[in-house]
Design a protein around this nucleic acid. Structure first.
Lengths: 144, 144
DNA sequence: GGCTTACATATCGTAATACGACATAATAAC
DNA sequence: GTTATTATGTCGTATTACGATATGTAAGCC
């Protein structure tokens, strides 16, 4: 399947360290992000959903399925997520006129306000973490 | 509370899209990684633990606490994770001679073999995903 | 030395959520 | 028109991270 049949690839301890460091930097960012979302009163995945909807490129509003593909989750999981968010007053659901199977999603003013604050915080934090992230990513190649 | 009282920061739809794209690329990598771990018979977090232990820089073997700090999880969570991994024949636990509160962690040959395969697969996949990741990360600054 | 405080690990109950399996409604294909 | 496909929704289950708490070990201090 791959070329890893004979002759162990022989990964050095340095390579493991480089990859481990990359994952560590990734976790730093994700832990920050999850903490920021929680402090703003949102489960992390709801924050991601807001971002995906606000960042959606295209004319029409995104649907549940679009959200699922953007978040890389199963469609039924997205439906559940959307339901919780509607209950929380973050999303509006509207049946599409073109295709009445589809549900179009929109952000409420409340959601927009929360997302704006969270995004500002993320941009600040990324200014700090991005260099380490890029360095760690490059370190993987350098250790090869 | 924050400095977002007057003068809304005014985030553009382009900025949201850029950040959303970065998170999408991140998810692509994480979904790949989780899937690869599962296919190898490991819960994703156990893969991360193996990597953190193998990539640990330093003379002594890492302890449960070291692992917790590397994975950014609570110490008790790390203890549970380590317990499950020991049951699965992936880790050896040895009481430290210096400080008998500490438990030193080592990889079993089985774990080393799995980690090696997973790491090869990750290096391959990173070769594909890294450019998009770096581009998306840069896109955040460019959209500012 | 004893006594108190801090630390490392472990245990247990709880909560959150993603998924598989399934159901329903609407559209598309032929 | 009948069948297949698509979009969304519902329900039960399983996994795991955490808080609260417990135990053993070490360190500080008088």
């Amino acid at each position: 399947m791959t070329s890893v049949r004979r002759g162990e690839p022989g990964l050095s301890s340095e390579q493991y360290a480089a990859i481990a460091d990359f994952r560590f930097q990734l976790r730093r960012f994700l832990v920050f992000s999850e903490g920021a979302a929680m402090k703003a009163g949102l489960p992390p995945q709801q924050h991601q959903a807001l971002l995906a909807i606000a960042g959606h490129r295209g004319e029409e509003l995104p649907s549940v399925g679009v959200l699922a593909r953007q978040l890389l989750i199963a469609p039924n999981t997205a439906a559940e997520l959307v339901h919780r968010m509607e209950q929380g007053g973050l999303l509006t659901k509207t049946a599409s006129v073109d295709d009445r199977r589809r549900t179009e999603l929109g952000l409420t003013p409340k959601a927009e306000a929360i997302l704006r604050r969270l995004t500002v915080a993320h941009l600040e934090e990324l200014r700090v973490l991005e260099p380490a992230l890029v360095r760690a990513l490059g370190g993987i190649d350098r250790a090869e």
